[in-house]
Amino acid sequence: MASSTNTSDGTHATTEAYGGDHGGSGVFPPFDSSTFGSQILWLALTFAALYILMSKVALPRIGEILEVRRDRIEGDLAEAERLKQKTDQAIRSYEAELADAKQKAHNIAEETRDQIRADLDEKRAKVEADLAKKMAVAENNIRETKQAAMDHVDEIASETALAIVTNIVGRTAQKAAKDAVAKVVKG
């Protein structure tokens, strides 16, 4: 495997010394210090390139993707929370209004009932007063009529008695008849 034509180079002399051979002769490859320089150099170059690519391109990009996603999720959750609160508020105000309306309806019903009852009571009182008045008048009438009748009864009785007495006795004693009638009535 003596592919390299460079024999004047001290750095790679060892490499070529066992180039076409197996590891039995020469140095164990990982401890072959002649390759150290080259390995460190390429490691430095490649690792620096990797670090720059990672820190400038790949990682900011992935970080941005993750951040955008996190922001989006948080934004969506906040929006959902906001809408939920809005809904809750709407429900609350609806319930408040409903309770208010119920109260109002109740009040109106109560008021109407009271009014009707008052009206009724008033009318009944009026009618009753009216009736009582009429009754009193009627009773008065009856009493007057009765009185009048009673008065006439006395008169009729005394007249009748006079007539009877006149018929029987043939004479009249008006004054005596009246007294007799009065006595009977009183008795």
Binding site: T11, H12, T35, S38, T46, F47, A49
Partner: peptide, 20 residues
């Protein structure tokens, strides 16, 4: 001052290229 590009360097480059 000679710089040798070895199989080790090749795989370092391959590693970096693959990752990136």
């Amino acid at each position: 001052f000679e710089i040798a590009f070895t199989n080790s360097a090749l795989f370092m480059v391959a590693t970096v290229v693959l990752i990136s």
